[in-house]
Amino acid sequence: MTLFTLDQAAREARLLPELVELTEHHRARSPEYARLLAALGHPPGRRYDRLADLPWLPVRLFKHHVLKSIPDDEVFKVLTSSGTTGDVSRIFLDREAAGLQQKMLSATLGAVTGPKRLPMLLVDTRALFKNRASFSARGAGVLGLMNFGRDHTFVLDEQERPDPEAVRAFLDRHGDRPFLIFGFTFMTWLYLYELAREHSFDLSNGILIHSGGWKKLVDRAVDNAEFRRRLTADTGLRRIHNFYGMVEQIGTTFLEGPDGGGLYCPDFADVIVRDPRTWAEVPAGTPGVVQVVSTMPRSYPGHLLLTEDRGVVRGVDDGAWPGKRFEILGRLPRAEARGCSDTFAEAA
């Protein structure tokens, strides 16, 4: 069972009416969103022929404004993003949305982890959870992913130093059958890769899922291809899946396919890359600004969001999985930083 099944035509045919309905749903329940649609010239009942015609919101709007489509007394959880500027997005979930986002995250990652909980190696430190006051977005990210594994082992000790004995013990117990590895991209490279190479650890049964962007690795000349090549060459790890997502579209995860040929959209989501001069959709191969599309958000109007990431669609219906496959190229210059890999050891 996988959530990566729809080709582009089938996907758009399914998503368009659902997104139009969602737009009306949010218009009816959020006066703020209704005012915005009116100001932008999107009256109720307007006809849309393409996903790209629907009105999108810049994701940073959620940092400055409360936008929600549920009454105050139904707010079950308020999620906040990480950010370097002090501004954080606030995303409001009711009980149903909170349950659904976990379920969809699980179903999406299930495409690569399989149905069973696997032993799990976390490229992080348990100290993340010790101090509740400083509980960061990184901590929340790790905690959210921990649900997918069992027998959790941390690669770093509580002083944030690599712990080769812990990793060795984990591999002695679980290394001969599939196991899960989760880490932020730069930490996976700086700590797990270096450690595994140094100690000749065999990670060939591992399934790595990682996220967080390449910015901190650029000066080491490590891009996605190099990351995959060297992990495979030096540790035996082959099943490597980068993923992309944001708290403002929680539960929607764009996942790298088994071939490393790009990020793919789950069936309830899509991406549109736009020309930052005209904001029109650009064809595959042309870089632009990434808009993320998802039918998940029902408790807040986050179904059509313009991110502050640059990206490019590499191909449509031509990869390991159907639909668009795309790549994130980096953040818009001067736009505020986003991401959940916060202040850990910048100088490491």
Binding site: A39, P58, L61, V289, E308, L332, P333, R334, A335
Partner: peptide
């Protein structure tokens, strides 16, 4: 540039959200 263009969207859309702008 693109970052400035996004900045303008964030700022002006925000005015509409607040009710300070009608168009």
């Amino acid at each position: 540039d693109a970052a400035m263009a996004v900045e303008k969207r964030v700022a002006t859309y925000g005015l509409a959200v607040e009710g300070a702008a009608t168009a």
